[in-house]
């Protein structure tokens, strides 16, 4: 007699991913979208048609599953408990922040973030209270995707990942690394579920804002996500957005149009469900992993050079050191 499989087994057997994939493809087929063929090619989002289907699928999952659970959590849980849970997970994430501080050679910030983690883990009762904030230790936001950006890895095309939402090709190895470094990934399933619930509950304000303000929520989410990530990767120093004025925007537009002509030449022929594009995406993600490995190697050689220069510096006469 066949025993019913648990969900983990189903996922391993590949059945659940198939069901999930067919669900979003079916939802994509069922939706009539007359203007699809007329949509102009977008350099940053070449997989827009597929991305839109995944976005719709994620939206459906949020409407029927994640949203209601999050609403129930926010309704039954006192505010101070929600804050405590959010603080605790943010505190654990600081291990990842410190790691990325060091990889980006932000040593002072790394020391501050280590202090932040130490204070909140002890005085802040395992991170439930954000004591460090009252000591003017600001919460920094660093992750491996930003580290890769600092190392010069291009972000690649925009992607919407099933269940997880907006990303870029560079964001995939970034997220894989961050998941591996975050201790939450290794704890019992209920804690992981609570972590996801906390993340969804914290996103409530942003999701409501998109609902209220966006004419095309897909485009609105994409643009705000990409701008927000660029701003984080450059620590707010990017002048790409501050340089935008009338002429700048027109120049951007002209640039985007001229870029489209060359990009179209090498582009895969679109089949009905965009499988070609999906497989092309996997190739790009693989490329991004390769670039990540290369970036690691380059960073390593830079560190070696740094050590070498340092030793040379020690051998220099004292008056050189002053300069």
């Amino acid at each position: 007699m066949n025993k019913p499989r648990n969900s983990h087994g189903l996922w391993n057997s590949g059945l659940l991913p198939c069901i999930a994939l067919s669900l979003f493809l079916v939802s994509g087929c069922a939706t009539s979208e007359p203007a699809r063929q007329a949509r102009p090619f977008n350099k940053i989002d070449p997989y827009e048609n597929v991305n839109r289907e995944i976005y719709k699928f994620n939206d459906m999952v949020d409407d029927y599953i994640a949203g209601p659970i999050s609403d129930a959590y926010r309704y039954i849980t006192p505010k101070f408990v929600q804050t405590g849970v959010a603080n605790a997970f943010a505190n654990i994430k600081n291990i990842n922040v410190v790691f990325n501080d060091l990889l980006q050679a932000k040593f002072v910030q790394g020391a501050e973030d280590t202090g932040r983690f130490a204070i909140n883990s002890t005085v802040g009762l395992a991170g439930l209270f954000d004591v460090a904030k009252s000591m003017s230790l600001e919460q920094h936001q660093e992750d491996f995707d930003q580290t890769l950006a600092v190392w010069g890895v291009a972000k690649g095309p925009y992607l919407v990942v099933p269940f997880l939402g907006p990303s870029t090709v560079r964001g995939i190895p970034g997220a894989a690394f961050d998941t591996a470094v975050n201790p939450t990934s290794y704890v019992a399933t209920p804690f992981q579920a609570l972590s996801m619930l906390n993340a969804r509950a914290n996103a409530e304000g942003a999701l409501r804002f998109i609902d209220e303000a966006a004419l095309d929520p897909y485009v609105f989410t994409r643009e705000s996500f990409l701008q927000w990530r660029d701003n984080l990767a450059t620590d707010g120093k990017s002048n790409a957005n501050t340089a935008l004025d009338e002429e700048g925007l027109d120049a951007d537009l002209a640039d985007a149009t001229s870029g489209a002509a060359t990009a179209k030449g090498g582009f895969l022929t679109m089949d009905k469900f965009g499988f070609g594009k999906v497989s092309n995406t996997f190739v790009l993600v693989k490329d991004s992993f390769d670039q990540t490995t290369l970036a690691f190697e380059q960073a390593n050689s830079k560190l070696d050079r740094l050590k070498f220069d340092h030793s040379k510096l020690l051998m220099l006469p004292t008056h050189y050191k002053v300069h």
């Binding site: 966006a214 004419l215 095309d216 485009v219 609105f220 994409r222 643009e223 705000s224 701008q227 927000w228 660029d230 701003n231 984080l232 707010g236 990017s238 957005n241 501050t242 935008l244 925007l249």
Partner: peptide, 13 residues
């Protein structure tokens, strides 16, 4: 916070 209202609206509209 680094997100341009003009650029966002232009893409959306």
């Amino acid at each position: 916070d680094g997100v341009s209202d003009l650029a966002l609206k232009r893409s959306d509209y």
